[in-house]
């Protein structure tokens, strides 16, 4: 599925919740709780994204064609949001990832997670994923970051 199709699927899922923010957050929290995104052994300090109130680790891999993304956070909501972003972007070509507008975050009513405050981890995560994608794009060969 394309990035847009992935986004559409998530928007459709969230439409069920309507105006009920509690259900939306419960969904995100469940995502945050259920996914073992990175093992403790993998959570090296060099994978930490700086400047977030919660800790956020990011590990990306490029096989020469597609980029895969893994991330984790010590805050459940941040982790749940990261899981959604990964679901949308994972296993796509770097140029698709660089150019993805990620409108779904606004569309599912979670835009507040993108506000430019220092508390925010999601903005930094997306920025770093795109920076990694740009680096892979310019090199073209397989690599892990």
């Amino acid at each position: 599925m394309s990035i847009e199709e992935n986004e559409k699927e998530i928007i459709d899922e969230f439409n069920i919740f309507g105006d009920d923010w509690e259900s939306r957050y419960e969904y995100i929290i469940d995502l945050g709780k259920s996914l073992p995104l990175l093992s403790d052994a993998e959570k090296h300090d060099n994978l930490l994204i700086k400047g977030c109130q919660s800790k956020m680790w990011l590990k990306t891999y490029f096989d020469g064609t597609l980029m895969s993304i893994r991330a984790d956070s010590d805050a459940i909501i941040t982790k749940g949001m990261a899981a959604l972003v990964i679901r949308v972007l994972n296993n796509h070509r770097p140029e698709e990832i660089v150019n993805a507008p990620l409108n779904f975050i606004d569309a599912i009513g979670l835009k507040e997670h993108l506000s430019p405050t220092r508390a925010n981890g999601l903005t930094s995560l997306i920025k770093q994923i795109k920076l990694d994608a740009l680096a892979y794009l310019s090199k073209g060969s397989s690599e892990t970051k």
Partner: peptide, 21 residues
Amino acid sequence: GLHPYDVGMILDKYGVAVRTG
């Protein structure tokens, strides 16, 4: 067992402004 950030986010949804971090 909970991260202060998560608690602060949910409190905000209930109109409660606290500082976390």
